[in-house]
Write a protein that binds this DNA or RNA. Structure first.
Lengths: 207, 207
DNA sequence: TGCCATAAGAAACGTCAAGTTCTCTACCCA
DNA sequence: TGGGTAGAGAACTTGACGTTTCTTATGGCA
């Protein structure tokens, strides 16, 4: 098929979706999410271009910008859309194992394409501080809640001092993990997680 | 004064430094550093443009790129050049006060234009992971060394368990501070520093 | 003192992606 | 079945980056 552009230059299109089947609403939304994640996996956040996402989704840039004001918002939505339930919730009956299980779950996530995305989102936070609230609400606070729950179960079993059930203590795990994640190259080694639990958290919470 | 550009368009320049006094070497180097810091203070890292730094320094972009390959390298050098000696080294004879003093010193730094710059540099780390080593060597490792020294003095006075003299414990202060810095809007409240010391570090190191 | 290599200043250029706008048209619904 | 909505595709505008070119001031050296 041959069309002629406004400037008269002929372009040969494999498929012109002005004429082909055309998705709308949720179907298009989902297709863009999948394209975003594929692109994220393929080239990473830093090299992710709106135009490439559009092409991969067989959509137009206009459709993307109609829904999201920026790359950051698109990626935040796309990652949030696919993170299953923000990692598993281990319950082994032992606080140390539960804590380690949580950290390992997060680390696995951060070592994959979602980690790439979160790293990039935190970077964009500088140009757009409002994004920080979004990142915190979606990717940070849930982790603290999970740790607090683990500590409460431990306290119920008598493993954990009740005075350790504070936000400051509960967020130590997520904080140290994120800190490690942001300052070191991936992947996060398991040894670092064990140190966080055994050298910092356990001594602080032991009954 | 009026000059004629290559394309024949007349341009009216206040001063054309092809004819004016011309700095070289260290004088120019220093002028560029000062312009970088002024620009950082004025518009922040995200909005810092090489061209604007050049204009402010009354230098050319060419001169900048002859010395630094990127904005990140320029800013890293400029900030490092002006940080006095990476904060004071309190020695009050009391571990808790020393720790708090260190954290307050860093927090003051991070609440100013240097903090803006460091935040931005950490963001650029995503596009350029080599930068991470530079940031760590210049702005992170010195902090850990300082804390380790404070802990050693405390141990010598019998205030600190000798088993607490590990990198994991010594870097807790800088780690938690940086974590807070990266995830929250400035400024860092003093309350957060006190919590780090009293709820996390002190319980872990007490003899 | 005068010559010359070096490097600074200014401006233009090529590139690239962001974001916008335009036209055309498929799809949905009343 | 006809009209409004929204998607596809491409051109366009803008803005910054990093480079190149040309001119000329500066400092070292003979």
């Amino acid at each position: 098929m041959t069309t002629v552009s406004q400037t008269g230059k002929p372009t040969h299109d494999a498929v012109d979706h002005r004429k082909g089947p055309r998705r709308r609403g949720d179907a298009l939304h989902a297709a863009i999410f999948e394209a975003t994640l594929d692109e994220l996996t393929a080239v990473g956040y830093a090299e992710l271009k709106m135009e490439h996402v559009a092409n991969r989704a067989r959509a137009s840039k206009g459709s993307l910008y109609r829904r999201w004001a920026s790359r950051a918002e698109l990626v935040a939505d796309a990652v949030h859309y696919t993170i299953p339930s923000c990692a598993a919730r281990p319950d082994t009956g032992n606080v140390r194992e539960d804590l380690l299980g949580c950290l390992r779950g997060f680390a696995t996530l951060l070592n994959g394409p979602s980690g790439e995305a979160i790293r990039g989102l935190m970077a964009d936070t500088i140009r757009n501080p409002d994004l920080m609230e979004v990142v915190r609400a979606r990717f940070i606070d849930p982790g603290v809640d999970l740790f607090l729950e683990v500590l409460r179960r431990g306290a119920a079993r008598g493993e954990v001092r009740t005075t350790a059930l504070t936000p400051r203590i509960a967020s130590l795990g997520p904080d140290l993990l994120r800190e490690y994640f942001l300052v070191h190259r991936p992947p996060i080694p398991d040894r670092a997680l064990v140190e966080m639990v055994d050298d910092v958290i356990m001594p602080l919470i032991r009954a």
